[in-house]
Design a protein around this nucleic acid. Sequence first.
DNA 1: TACATTGCGATCCGT
DNA 2: TCGCAATGTA
Length: 718
Amino acid sequence: MDLFQDLNPPQKEAVGHTEGPLLVLAGAGSGKTRVLAHRIAYLLSEARARTDQILAVTFTNKAAGEMADRVRALVGDVSAGMWMGTFHSICSRLLRIEGRRLGISPDFTIYDEQDQKLLVKQVMADLGLSPSKLAPSGVLSRISWAKSGLLTPDEYAKRALGPYEKRVATVYPLYEAALRMSNALDFDDLITIPVRLLGGHPEVLERNAARFRYILIDEYQDTNKAQYELVRLLSSTHRNICAVGDDDQSIYRWRGADVTNILNFERDFTDAKVIRLEQSYRSTKTILAASQAVIQRNKMRKAKTLWTENPVGRKIVVSGVGGEQEEGRFIADAVEQFAREESRGHGQFVVLYRTNAQSRALEEALRKSAIPYVIVGGLKFYERKEIKDIIAYLKLVSNPKDSVSLARIINVPNRGIGDVTFSRLKEFAADEGVTTGEVLDRVSEIESLKPGARRRLEVFGDIVRELRSLSESHPVAELIGLVAEKSGYLDHLKQQTTIEAMSRLENIQELVAGGYEFQERSETPTLAKFLEEVSLVMDIDLWDDHREAVSLMTLHNAKGLEFPIVFIAGVEEGLIPHHTSFEDQEELEEERRLFYVGLTRAKERVFITVALGRRGFQGWMPQVGSRFLEDIPDEFVETITPFHEERRPAPVRDHEDWGEEKIVHTGSRVRHPDWGVGTVLMSEGYGEQLRLTVRFGGNVTKRVLARYANLEILDGEI
DNA sequence: TACATTGCGATCCGT
DNA sequence: TCGCAATGTA
């Protein structure tokens, strides 16, 4: 099979340029996945590398699976043993092999955000910091930022500036110590610990850098500093690193992604070859031109010119809708019409939105119209209480030092072990310098316990020990069932007759089924591996793209996907760009890229909805169309229903005048050129988000965004 | 120690 | 609007 046959010239070059660093700047829809798959197939078929000498990093586990399928289709079943997956799954694998050197035993537990939060709270409590004064989630995000930037607690402390950072700096080292003590890793550790391992142990570096003759990284624009450092180290021997990405699609800056990794690739790898893939095979000329017009407004980007031989296609439809219900109905109607008139399967549609909260109304509308749909994300299976509880038992069984999991389940279901007993356990553990989990085997030594409490703890300890020994003789799926049974969880749920309890039982059943599925699929179906998969699974991994249903997902989840018909819901100021980004130029550029990613998912049609108002956290809030819509030239747009009745080209008032909430009170009088003089009935929000409800003469009441409404204040005061 | 009630606060994107 | 944390009561 000629692996170059169906490729265009730059694609051929990217596949054939195997030696030395290579950066492929791949525009949206330019066939980068194809290039990666062909490149791997070429390396294997030319026998330049064995499968286990190739490292391919993808952005999702699903993408890794699809890559393996494509390679298999090209050169047969050779992908077994290949290092292919997300940064996190690859690092996890590496750590189970090499982690011991840094005191990470292979049965380590991965802490998710909930676990991290509990741990931070514990640490903060020990420091006497009140969670109401210092938000644990805020502390955690600073720590995560530091870790993904490879800053140790010491380094962070040195550069900590204000009082806030200084307090974070006191939590950080203790948080790290607590993780190590529990033999647990957070998501950042999965990357940073391998980096320290490779950076600090020459023999480990040598072994692993020698192994990986060829390294490929997809979605390179969304790697963070730690991930960059990891691939830099791993590629140091052979230097055959191929990074593929598009700076215009960098949408994870908030998670530590550093787009300079792509912008500076040529500086970091001096003899790097750069290849641009600029022909788009995905979108129509109209969609491509419109999206280019949007993204070109960004300042921080590499200039590029995408082109396509695809037909011009139809215009982008922008429609104003009253609120979220109407928005849902509009989308549902459009789907029905397409399905009917053009015999489109439901799988051809996707509805994209900025926030998961938007999915509710959209979902409802589709359900009302009896349109099959699937939601990606939202309430995750593995985040349900009963599932997290059972998983916590499994984690404790797998890793006896896991203190967070123990705290979660020591009294679930109720077994009479309350706060008092647990704090005596903690106290004893602290005195002995071990974790609470380890103390479970030494309950008799804790003198502060009352006889009843001691007995109950012993019983619980027996359960855990029994499960631990069962875990050695039973496969994962059976163990899950045993956990549910021996922990008393099943009985506890069966006692209740509520619908909720029934559904929890079903979910546990589903987890058992998942365990069986895992055993059949996995080469090494160990408990640790199962727990790793459960921790690292992504919503999008579970999404079945062959299902004939309309997909609903966030713009972030849509990265790398394509659909014939794309709806983007809620293209409004405050949603996209999200209001939290209003004051930061770089964040605004990221929001623009996010919108660009949304547009470029479409092959044929784009529908955009703009709601005139939405239910906010406290009532109805008027909305105005996104500034990004103005960047799409009129020639590419067909507006069905007007969407910015209050929007005028020149806001009369300088922003200053609206800067303070106090300026306009209820009862203030204002004048509007069309509506005349009116009285303010209600004001919500402040600054640029100030919204007023005004009653004008003739019983006309209007809700307006003050920033855009052409209002003159007659008697407002400071 | 368990459970009910009240009150508050935080509201995006997700490995 | 909702979920969770602190508080009060059996």
